[in-house]
């Protein structure tokens, strides 16, 4: 197979970027999208060019490091997968493929297709945890948790923090990410003591990082590789509202 690739190149955070067009030859249908880029990079290197920088690590869809917008869709549009799990057989031979980084003010481009997602870490630091130190935890079975609750918490906890939700949202809102963490922890009884302060703190932190508001377009959930449902945003909204009415501050 061969492809025409239109790839975003940007030499540094403060630099302006542009698209460059590459021809990728000898691509096998079995290759993953990122392996196709590996091959392209080897071809570029040998011909004396600068290879394309992009993030990836586990390459099995769980670490959340890979972050490419393929033909306008974060992770490339295959349902429930990250771009590292996308294979070239999903594309037509000879097709032109546009590859861009996540776009959002809170995720500045560092180089080429690499973006800075540390804003997500700071959101978690603002309240995405249960304040328990190591040691002194009661026996794990001392607190029964219904299967439904555990499953609901798990569905939200499956978030890999890749940022596709922000990349897909026309407002660059981080509500699906934040909602997932709040739903995970606030659904479980262990998370109840900090339920409201967690919701309020996380919302304040999201705004501070420069993410937009949710206008319920549903684009985030549509591209989420872990198919986190929009319900988590509803849960965050509710816990936030109740928190504010109770006078909880960040």
């Amino acid at each position: 197979m061969k492809f025409t690739l239109k790839i975003w190149r940007q030499s540094g955070p403060e630099k302006s970027g542009h698209f460059e067009t590459y021809e990728a030859h000898d691509i096998q249908a079995e290759m993953s999208f990122l392996e196709m880029l590996d091959v392209l990079n080897e071809q570029i290197t040998i011909s004396g060019g600068q290879p394309v920088n992009f993030d990836s690590d586990c390459r099995e869809g769980i670490c959340g490091m890979c972050s490419l917008v393929v033909n306008g869709i974060p992770h490339g549009g295959q349902k429930g997968t990250t771009v590292c799990q996308l294979h070239m057989r999903s594309f037509a031979d000879g097709q032109t493929i546009t590859i861009e980084p996540w776009r959002a003010k809170a995720f500045p481009v560092l180089k080429d297709l690499v973006v800075d997602r540390s804003a997500f870490d700071r959101i978690i630091q603002s309240g995405g945890y249960i304040s328990v130190n190591t040691g002194g935890a009661p026996d794990a079975n001392a607190l029964p948790i219904s299967k439904d609750q555990a499953e609901m918490a798990f569905d939200a906890a499956a978030c890999i923090g890749c940022g596709a939700c922000v990349a897909a949202c026309k407002n660059s809102s981080a509500m699906l990410f934040a909602g997932a963490k709040v739903t995970h922890l606030n659904t479980l009884p262990q998370g109840h003591p900090e339920k409201y302060s967690r919701a309020v703190s996380i919302v304040v932190s999201m705004d501070k990082e420069g993410f937009g508001a949710c206008t319920v377009t549903g684009a985030c959930a549509a591209v989420c590789p872990k198919e986190i449902p929009l319900d988590v945003i509803s849960k965050l909204n509710r816990d936030y509202a109740v928190g504010i009415l109770k006078g909880v501050s960040a």
Partner: peptide
């Protein structure tokens, strides 16, 4: 420890 942290183990 993990349960106290909110790890959603199967139940």
């Amino acid at each position: 420890q993990c349960v106290a942290q909110g790890v959603p183990f199967a139940r």
